[in-house]
Design a protein around this nucleic acid. Structure first.
Lengths: 190, 190
DNA sequence: TCTTTTACCGAATAATTATTCCATTATCTT
DNA sequence: AAGATAATGGAATAATTATTCGGTAAAAGA
């Protein structure tokens, strides 16, 4: 018998990401995915039960990957500000390098496609940031404010700055990253 | 002869906003709009040529309204920080009071529905912020950084903080607004 | 090599949803 | 009040798009 091709799923994922990036989730359709991935429509249904399952499956996969990537490279035992900068740089670079993926996740987050399980995946991504902020507070570096508010402030800033970079095709230099970080740092320290 | 009811357009707009808020733009359909607005499907087509025209028309209308609302109440001749705080508070309160509207605009911005004209409307909204920031630089209060970056930082923060409030149903108090503003203020001053 | 199983394709079908059509109703004009 | 015109509702139709199906080809196992 013939086995499933392990590459096909990634092919379908990539086609989906590209199409959503180009025209938004609302315009996504199975025929287009097939064409973009150079597969017959029926083939997609070998790997996914339905369009909804495909979307949820891709969403899950991206969420998992993303959480890994951001926290992977924090230097253990480094001073607070160093860790903060590492996290910030990781986050920004990650958002840019995997722009398509993040765009897809964002579009899904406010759609009717996501199932209950998918909707819960957000929480855990903040865990690492919250821990780091707690440490900053203990060291009397960080303002005594709600972690959720501090995090929202920094991530909101980072996201919008990435959006700006993509729109204006700004090349991310070290100087640019340092500038963006300074804004966030100055805001959270007391 | 019978005249068009001037209230119907608003009825259709409101139904559209509610539905998009609930299930996202991708799930929006004409039958649902009719039902929500308590109008026949045919009636919608008396007021709008197509679904696409309805969406673009609502988008335009919201963009216009919004730009007005934010800049309406700045105190003339007030010190820089006062104006900044007014603008910030206006922006946040506006995002919350008109959450449905902003959500709709955001969903549209990355969809295939918007026509070329609609896609240009964003620029002018920043004008007022840029001017204010230039003044802050002249007064040696604001960091010498690109206005677009400074604006992205503050708006990104504000947007994400609003999202947090909506998600966790946080009631906006004066203290909360002051806290959120402090974050932004501390980040942009030199 | 032969058999068997399943991937693969894309046309056919089903399901959904946008748009039109027309009978009815409301209200403006004279 | 009668006629004229256009709004209204929702069933009928058209268009789009998800899903299934049946034939074909590939490759695993015997």
């Amino acid at each position: 018998m013939k086995l499933k091709d392990p590459d096909k799923i990634q092919l379908i994922y990539n086609a989906t990401l590209k199409l959503v990036k180009e025209s938004g989730l609302a315009a996504l359709n199975m025929a287009a995915i097939g064409k973009e991935a150079k597969l017959g429509m029926g083939t997609i249904y070998v790997y996914f039960k339905s369009k909804e399952e495909l979307i949820n499956s891709l969403f899950h996969s991206l969420k998992r990957l993303n959480t890994q990537r951001i926290y992977a490279t924090l230097t253990p035992d480094a001073p607070f500000k160093i860790n903060m900068k590492e996290l910030f740089d990781n986050y920004i670079i990650n958002r840019i390098d995997y722009f398509e993926e993040h765009f897809f996740v964002e579009q899904c987050s406010n759609s009717h496609y996501l199932d209950a399980e998918s909707r819960q995946l957000d929480e855990e991504a903040f865990h690492g940031v919250f821990e780091l902020l707690d440490r900053g507070k203990k060291e009397l570096l960080v303002k005594d404010m709600d972690n959720a508010v501090l995090t929202a402030h920094m991530m909101g800033s980072a996201n919008e700055i990435v959006a700006l970079c993509m729109k204006q095709k700004i090349k991310i230099t070290k100087a640019f990253l340092d500038g963006a970080f300074t804004l966030c740092w100055d805001s959270i320290i007391r």
